[in-house]
Nucleic acid binder design. Structure first.
Lengths: 143, 143
DNA sequence: AAAAACTATGTACAAATAGCATATAGTGTA
DNA sequence: TACACTATATGCTATTTGTACATAGTTTTT
């Protein structure tokens, strides 16, 4: 439906959507167009999940996020989460000795605490999955 | 695994989890225990979905949220969203004439714009569903 | 060889989110 | 009378997070 695209541009939704007053940058509402307002909250679980499989640097994780449709998330958000996670002990990092195609990169590895957290988050996500299904089942196809 | 419960209380996760510095109220991190950090973002889609089916007042919507596992969300959040949605034209409200078991209640109805938004959000949620499934599939069962 | 493009990480700032406390108030019940 | 439940709403403020910007090494193009 191209009409929905038209609606997107003209309505309060899309990237320009702001709740009530407020204007400018910040978080705003990003339901549609860029990415869902839900999706930002998937970054943290995703990072832990990726790191459980293999050690990776921020840039690599950014690419993996893109692969699952989270490419619109700002790199700064990802780097910040990684540093915060290191501070609270969910991940550890070391500078990569083998030179990359660029400046040195910080390679992250998940810790025991991180794995524990991931297990919790995994259960949490499964519940979220059910909740989303419940919401979708409420919605009648077209009006 | 009761050990996970123990972990919950002692670790940085659970309701007391704060990223880096910071302390006190605000949004914080509520991954585990209370509800997932993702779930707060499901309130807006859920409200629109509920209102597509029937006109309801805030308190009734709060009960419907609880029914799908979103009972831990603050009523203030819901009332604020409803007023904001009215301001931007996604819903309309009227005071209920038939007295309830309490003070008068404001009954909300979805508008044409609201229905349009719901359709967009519905598609968005379907993508989110796939993303969560992608994340969960990355996670290996236990370490 | 200079410029552009890509790889790679990080900080400062400002705007929006959302939990908590609180205020208000009508109805039903012990 | 007091308490519990129904019902709506606002102020405070800590936290989140997008944008802009800063920095810098490597590879490719002009």
């Amino acid at each position: 439906m191209k009409n929905d695209q038209e609606f997107l541009r003209n309505s309060n939704f899309g990237s320009g959507f702001r709740r009530g007053h407020g204007h400018g940058r910040g978080r705003g509402r990003h339901w549609i167009g860029e990415y869902s307002l839900v999706d930002v909250r998937l970054v943290e679980p995703a990072l832990l999940a990726f790191l459980q499989k293999e050690n990776l640097h921020g840039y690599g994780l950014l690419e993996k996020l893109e692969a699952i449709g989270l490419g619109a998330i700002s790199p700064s958000v990802v780097y910040r989460i990684l540093r915060d996670y290191e501070e609270i002990g969910l991940v550890e990092s070391d500078w990569d000795v083998e030179a990359s195609q660029g400046p040195p990169r910080r390679v992250y590895a998940i810790t025991a605490d991180g794995n524990h957290a991931l297990r919790q988050v995994s259960n949490s996500l499964k519940e979220t999955l059910e909740r989303i299904e419940a919401i979708l089942s409420e919605i009648e196809p077209d009006v």
